[in-house]
């Protein structure tokens, strides 16, 4: 199996960072993810959309007063994909 066969959705810096962050919490706010991954809003939006389209995360948009609040949550499909990705990476790292 070649290295390039890894899940292309996860094998990208920002998307992998987002998934790693979401995997250990129940849900996280857009602002929190942006701060923790040190990304820009524009880039993060694009990557979140890709993950959401793939069904790896669930995005909920609400209004808190007048401020929009975007919450992200990893789905079971996302957890499975992340598990598979980690197992494959571990295969490569085996001496």
């Amino acid at each position: 199996m070649g290295f390039n066969q890894l899940d292309p959705l996860l094998h990208s810096q920002l998307r992998l960072a987002v998934m790693s962050l979401l995997i250990s919490v129940e849900a996280a706010d857009f602002v929190y993810i942006k701060e923790q991954t040190e990304s820009t809003a524009g880039n993060l939006s694009v990557q979140l959309d890709k993950l959401s389209t793939a069904g790896y995360i669930e995005i909920t948009k609400q209004f808190e007063g007048k401020k929009p609040k975007t919450t992200c949550k990893v789905t079971q499909k996302g957890v499975d994909a992340f598990d598979t990705y980690v197992k494959e990476i571990q295969q490569y790292l085996k001496p």
Partner: peptide, 21 residues
């Protein structure tokens, strides 16, 4: 961190990124 050009991650980099996040 992630505004640099998207470069190919090595397995080590992937693992380090997951652990840090």
């Amino acid at each position: 961190l992630f505004e640099m050009e998207e470069k190919e991650l090595t397995p080590q980099e992937s693992m380090a990124l997951i652990q840090s996040m």
